[in-house]
């Protein structure tokens, strides 16, 4: 038997798979089925919400986690009822497309390391130091710039292997947005975006890819979403915030950042929370935003989506906490509710 004689079997398997696609779970194409696409970060919580919401008699919500950029493209093309992105769209761009935008859940981007003998939360970083490491200026763990922040911590004289995302992502956007704000050198050389030209390092695909690389490579430094830190028990570092304090990533420090951010004056909630003021605020706090048409072509489905998000913002918050997401602070949740009533109908 040669490899070619297996082709018919493979074809048969393919066609079987195609059949089971059609015969599987009903695709929500009915009047009240809601479809959305975008950020991979919110996929776990959206699918949990969707299941619970449907169980409670609500409409089915079908969410495709194709990435933030894809979500923006799909909602602009009008192929979905809502898009989700970790990067907010500026009000002008929203107005041009006739879209409204509101925050859904909060998370944080966390520096993680793999150094023998270092415990979670032990290492301290400042924004400029993180920028210098990611620029390739600080090359070794024994660099004086690191030692100065971490007196009494014994660090190896080994090169730092920098790990970043290889795919474009909202996580990267929040990370480099923070580095750009805090380091003029980073702003000038690399800038910000969902994918950038990294001066040094290896690229992992997705949060799980970066987490795997950091766990595999000794003396490495990477950045991942907070949920991955908790689920993989990774060694996170503290980061100095705008008030000068070193803060560990946690639900409380993310919420502190969210409540100190000036949401009331941000049109269409266009606000990236990095480097937020406040004593306890974690400096690289991120938000996932939902985009919907203000005047939908399909008002019935749009109304169903709104009903779902109202439910998620009130009843669904306990589940968000259980899955290591951080709910919106109550004030912000109220603002979102008012925005939904006034702007997206």
């Amino acid at each position: 038997m040669t490899i070619f004689s297996r082709l018919p079997i493979a074809l048969a398997a393919l066609s079987l798979a195609a059949c089971s696609d059609n015969g599987g779970a009903p695709v929500p194409t009915g009047q009240n089925g809601v479809t959305g696409a975008g950020s991979t970060f919110v996929y776990p919580i959206l699918s949990k919400w969707s299941a619970d919401y449907a169980e409670g008699g609500g409409d089915r919500v079908n969410y495709q986690s194709i990435g933030s950029g894809g979500g923006i493209a799909q909602i602009k093309a009008g192929t979905v009822d809502f898009g989700a992105s970790d990067k907010p769209l500026p009000p002008a761009e929203l107005a041009q497309a006739g879209l409204g935008q509101f925050p859904l859940v909060i998370g944080g981007v966390v520096p993680v390391v793999n150094i023998a003998g270092i415990k979670p939360g032990q290492l301290r970083f400042t924004g400029p130091l993180l920028a210098d490491i990611y620029l390739g200026k600080v090359k070794s763990w024994s660099d004086p710039a690191i030692a100065r922040l971490n007196p009494g911590v014994s660090l190896p004289a080994k090169p730092i292997t920098v790990v970043h995302r290889s795919d474009g992502s909202g996580t990267t956007f929040n990370w480099v947005h923070y580095l750009s704000q805090i380091s003029p050198a980073w702003q000038a050389r690399v800038g910000e975006g969902t994918s950038v030209q990294w001066p040094v390092g290896v690229g992992g695909k997705g949060n799980e890819g970066v987490a795997a690389y950091v766990n595999q490579i000794p003396n490495s430094l990477g950045y991942v979403e907070y949920a991955y830190v908790i689920q993989n028990r990774m060694t996170f570092g503290q980061v100095q915030n705008a008030a000068g304090r070193f803060v560990a990533p946690s639900a409380a420090s993310f919420q502190a950042a969210a409540s100190h951010a000036d949401w009331a004056h941000a049109q269409d909630f266009h606000l990236v929370m990095t480097n937020a003021p406040g004593e306890d605020a974690y400096p690289i706090t991120a938000t996932t935003f939902v985009m919907m048409y203000k005047a939908s072509k399909n008002p019935q489905r749009s109304a169903a989506a709104l009903k779902f998000f109202r439910w998620a913002l009130s009843k669904g918050q306990a589940e968000a906490t259980a899955l290591d997401y951080v709910p919106l602070p109550p004030d912000l949740a109220k603002q979102v509710d008012a925005y939904l009533t006034s702007t997206i109908k």
């Binding site: 990435g67 933030s68 290889s166 795919d167 474009g168 969902t194």
Partner: peptide, 18 residues
């Protein structure tokens, strides 16, 4: 040292090419 290949770059970056 790490590098990149054509197929890997496409697989990595297509979804978020904005």
């Amino acid at each position: 040292m790490p590098g990149n290949s054509i197929a890997a770059a496409i697989a990595n970056e297509f979804t978020e090419a904005d």
